[in-house]
Simulated assay, not measured.
Amino acid sequence: MDVTNRRTTATRRRPVKRRRARRRRLSARKRAALRLRRRLMLRRVLIGAGAVAAIAALAVLLPMTTAQAPVCAADPTSFPTAGIEGWQGEQLENAATIVLTARELGFDRAGQVIGVMAAMGESSLRAIDYGDWETSRVTNPDGSRTSSIGLFQQQEWWGSAEQRMDPASSAALFFDRLARLPAWHDMEPSLAIHRVQINTDPAHYAPFRSDAEAIVDALSGTCEVTG
Results as ranks from 00 to 15, higher is better:
residue 10 A to Y: 08
residue 58 L to Q: 10
residue 44 R to H: 08
residue 207 P to S: 04
residue 196 V to G: 03
residue 176 D to T: 09
residue 73 A to W: 01
residue 15 P to T: 04
residue 219 L to I: 15
residue 51 A to Q: 09
residue 165 M to P: 08
residue 126 R to K: 13
residue 119 A to Q: 07
residue 118 A to Y: 00
residue 119 A to V: 07
residue 199 N to D: 08
residue 187 M to Q: 12
residue 91 Q to F: 02
residue 105 L to Y: 14
residue 58 L to V: 14
residue 96 A to Q: 01
residue 116 V to A: 04
residue 206 A to T: 04
residue 31 R to Y: 09
residue 45 V to H: 14
residue 102 A to Q: 05
residue 223 C to M: 00
residue 134 E to Q: 10
residue 15 P to E: 03
residue 38 R to G: 09
residue 221 G to E: 03
residue 166 D to C: 03
residue 8 T to D: 07
residue 74 A to K: 13
residue 163 Q to I: 10
residue 166 D to V: 02
residue 182 P to H: 03
residue 58 L to C: 12
residue 186 D to K: 02
residue 20 R to E: 07
residue 185 H to M: 06
residue 5 N to P: 00
residue 100 L to F: 02
residue 193 I to M: 03
residue 128 I to G: 10
residue 50 G to M: 06
residue 198 I to S: 07
residue 169 S to R: 14
residue 11 T to R: 12
residue 160 S to C: 06
residue 205 Y to N: 01
residue 2 D to N: 02
residue 83 G to Y: 07
residue 89 G to K: 05
residue 175 F to M: 01
residue 154 Q to G: 15
residue 143 G to T: 03
residue 167 P to R: 13
residue 226 T to N: 14
residue 51 A to K: 07
residue 130 Y to S: 10
residue 30 K to P: 09
residue 199 N to C: 07
residue 19 R to A: 15
residue 156 E to F: 08
residue 13 R to A: 08
residue 207 P to A: 04
residue 124 S to N: 13
residue 41 M to A: 10
residue 175 F to Y: 08
residue 68 Q to I: 15
residue 84 I to T: 06
residue 205 Y to W: 01
residue 22 R to K: 14
residue 72 C to A: 01
residue 96 A to H: 02
residue 178 L to D: 00
residue 166 D to E: 03
residue 12 R to G: 06
residue 83 G to L: 08
residue 72 C to Y: 00
residue 135 T to R: 11
residue 52 V to T: 06
residue 225 V to H: 10
residue 36 L to G: 08
residue 187 M to N: 06
residue 174 F to L: 00
residue 219 L to V: 15
residue 5 N to C: 00
residue 120 M to R: 12
residue 15 P to K: 04
residue 211 D to T: 11
residue 13 R to L: 12
residue 184 W to C: 00
residue 75 D to Q: 08
residue 151 L to P: 13
residue 14 R to L: 14
residue 50 G to K: 05
residue 216 V to W: 06
residue 176 D to I: 03
residue 130 Y to H: 13
residue 209 R to T: 11
residue 109 R to S: 03
residue 77 T to G: 14
residue 108 D to A: 12
residue 190 S to F: 02
residue 93 E to P: 06
residue 168 A to T: 06
residue 72 C to W: 00
residue 140 N to S: 14
residue 27 S to W: 14
residue 133 W to T: 01
residue 218 A to G: 15
residue 125 L to G: 11
residue 95 A to Q: 01
residue 114 I to M: 09
residue 218 A to I: 12
residue 178 L to Q: 00
residue 92 L to H: 04
residue 55 I to R: 01
residue 70 P to W: 08
residue 210 S to H: 05
residue 197 Q to D: 04
residue 53 A to W: 11
residue 59 A to Y: 14
residue 56 A to L: 12
residue 164 R to Q: 11
residue 144 S to Y: 01
residue 122 E to H: 12
residue 34 L to H: 08
residue 87 W to M: 12
residue 204 H to W: 07
residue 131 G to P: 15
residue 47 I to G: 05
residue 194 H to R: 04
residue 110 A to N: 13
residue 194 H to A: 10
residue 96 A to R: 00
